[in-house]
Design a protein around this nucleic acid. Structure first.
Length: 285
DNA sequence: CGACTCTCCTGGGTGC
DNA sequence: TGCACCCAGGAGAGTC
């Protein structure tokens, strides 16, 4: 599942292999992949054809390309299973190839997505330079203008559980289920801890842990990047990340050895250490 | 308005 | 071998 580090790896790949290229043909193979482009697949193709990519940008898990028609941006969200790949034109089509952009250097930018939760769209650029659908997304911890104290204050003002707050992309962006669990484990906090009972040091601790674990993952993901193969890959570095709790049910906690537990929350799994992360007295589900 | 649930989707895994 | 079922989960829509 691409979260902030994986999306940043993709952005870097786009910056290296796609910025400066011109789109010479567009093929939408699955309309659902452009469902957020309300004028439809034909308009999507027309707005992209002939455009030159001038920059690759990101906020949280959203990724976009700037174009030589500055009013337009190509917005991408990878969802759960989306990938952006640069492939030579003669490479075999992937099973779940959804969108193909032919480039002027003999390569293609391909959007591949098994579950089609993700997709591409051409969006208007707002006054602050963001695609309109990204305007409500908070800055992520890698953003130079990210202000941790602002996020600490917002979290403590909320009336909800801590993990829900960490996953709220309007509070802090880029954190998904995996890094939320890892950050909570590092900070030794339970996912159902009521945000209102969190003191400032604890809030700083969990946010700092989220930034640190994502930075570490980015450090690993950046290494598996290699030109002209599966080089702009939403899952780069994903499998060799070292995860303390996520997906580690019944395995020993790396800190204390207690068996990691899995609990259901928000229709997804939460992994934690029963000893390092005791359930709060009055949990906020 | 804030908090929260529902829903979209596909394929790998599992149990009978 | 086949088939029903569960599960992965980001984020916008909708409800209260």
């Amino acid at each position: 599942m691409p979260e902030l580090p994986e999306v940043e790896v993709v952005r870097r790949g786009l910056a290296e292999h796609v910025v400066g290229r011109t789109v010479t043909a567009v093929e939408v193979r699955h309309p659902r992949a452009v469902r957020r482009h309300l004028p439809g697949p034909l308009d999507f193709a027309a707005r992209l054809d002939g455009r030159t990519v001038t920059a690759a940008r990101r906020r949280g898990k959203y990724l976009w390309l700037e174009l030589d028609r500055p009013a337009d941006l190509v917005l991408a969200h990878l969802g759960m299973s989306g990938q952006l790949l640069v492939q030579p034109v003669d490479a075999l089509d992937e099973t779940h190839l959804r969108i193909r952009l032919r480039l002027d250097d003999g390569n293609e930018l391909r959007f591949v997505d098994q579950r089609t939760f993700g997709g591409l769209s051409v969006e208007d650029r707002t006054d602050d330079g963001l695609p309109a659908p990204v305007a409500h997304i908070a800055r992520d911890p890698f953003d130079p203008a990210y202000l941790v104290e602002e996020v600490v204050a917002r979290i403590r003002r909320k009336d909800t559980g801590l993990k829900r707050a960490l996953l709220d992309q309007t509070v802090v962006s880029g954190i998904g289920n995996i890094y939320a669990d890892e950050a909570l484990w590092r900070a030794q906090l339970h996912w159902a801890r009521p945000t209102a009972t969190l003191d400032r040091p604890a809030a700083r601790r969990v946010l700092g842990a989220a930034a640190a674990v994502m930075a570490a993952a980015l450090g690993e993901g950046g290494t598996s990047f290699d030109a002209l193969y599966v080089n702009i890959n939403g899952e780069s570095g994903y499998f060799d990340r070292s995860l303390a709790v996520y997906g580690q049910e019944d395995r020993p906690c790396p800190r204390c050895g207690t068996a990691i537990r899995r609990e259901s929350f928000m229709n997804r799994s939460s992994y934690s250490c029963p000893r390092c992360q005791p359930r709060p007295r009055r949990p906020h589900w």
